[in-house]
Computed example of a mutant assay.
Amino acid sequence: MKTTLILCLVAFVVGDDKYDSSHDNIDLSEVLGNERLLVSYTNCLLDKGPCTPEVKQLKDKLPEALETRCAKCTDKQKTAGKQLVKEVKQKHPDLWKQLVSKYDPSGKYHKSFEDFLKN
């Protein structure tokens, strides 16, 4: 959510230690500045539309990333995830609410996620 897309478009796993960093250079401004693209990616994360392979990988790893506070994320993925979340929360609160409803319906990760965003 908490990341991204969208969170996060930043968490892709290959190994056991860290998420795959091959997509760390995604242009976040392109995603955040393109309403159609942002909605499309969000729809994938919400099971409301098709997924690109990259967003599908994110979607598959998002629950683990939330549970572990992104423990396997690279520094670049953490930074990008924080940027995405802050932007979506601020500029697209309706999308954010839908993501939270799907990935943290009970509020289980709320406090730890807010702490993660502060660091």
Rank of each mutant, 00 (worst) to 15 (best):
E64H: 11
L117R: 05
K78H: 02
K118A: 14
K59S: 07
L9Q: 01
K48H: 01
Y109L: 06
I6C: 06
M1H: 07
K2T: 10
Y109V: 04
L95H: 03
E64N: 04
L58E: 10
L99F: 06
V55M: 09
V14G: 11
Y109T: 09
S21V: 03
Q90E: 12
T52Q: 07
Q90R: 13
L7K: 08
F12N: 09
T74G: 08
P93M: 14
S29V: 07
P105F: 05
K102Y: 07
L46P: 01
C51H: 08
E35S: 11
I6R: 05
G33P: 00
G15C: 10
S22I: 08
L7H: 10
K61G: 09
S106T: 15
D60W: 01
C8G: 14
S106A: 14
D60Q: 14
Q90S: 13
S112W: 00
K91M: 06
K56F: 03
L58G: 03
D94R: 14
D27N: 15
V85E: 10
D24Y: 02
Y109H: 15
F113V: 12
L95G: 02
Q57S: 14
K18W: 06
S101Q: 15
L95E: 00
L7Q: 03
L37D: 04
D17N: 12
N119R: 15
F12S: 07
K72L: 14
V31I: 15
K61W: 12
K78Q: 11
K111L: 12
H23V: 09
Q57M: 13
T42E: 01
T68I: 10
R69D: 14
A11M: 02
K102R: 14
E67K: 15
K82G: 05
L7E: 09
L95Q: 04
V14C: 09
L99C: 08
K86A: 10
F113K: 04
L62Q: 13
K118Y: 00
K111S: 14
R36S: 10
Y103C: 10
A65I: 13
N25F: 12
F116E: 01
L5I: 15
S101N: 14
M1T: 09
P63C: 13
V88M: 09
D27R: 07
Y103G: 08
D47V: 08
K82S: 09
V31Q: 00
S22W: 05
S101L: 13
G107Q: 07
L28G: 06
Q57W: 12
L28C: 02
F116T: 06
T3H: 05
K82L: 07
P50H: 06
P105A: 12
N119W: 07
Y41T: 04
T42V: 09
L45P: 00
D75Q: 12
I6E: 05
C51K: 06
G15Y: 04
D16Y: 03
Q57E: 15
L46N: 02
H23C: 11
D75T: 11
K18T: 13
W96F: 15
K48R: 15
N34V: 01
E67Y: 09
S112K: 13
K48I: 01
K89G: 00
K108M: 02
D94E: 15
K18S: 12
M1G: 06
K2C: 10
K72T: 11
D94S: 15
K56S: 04
D104H: 10
G107D: 08
T3G: 05
E64M: 04
K97I: 00
S106N: 12
L9P: 04
H92I: 00
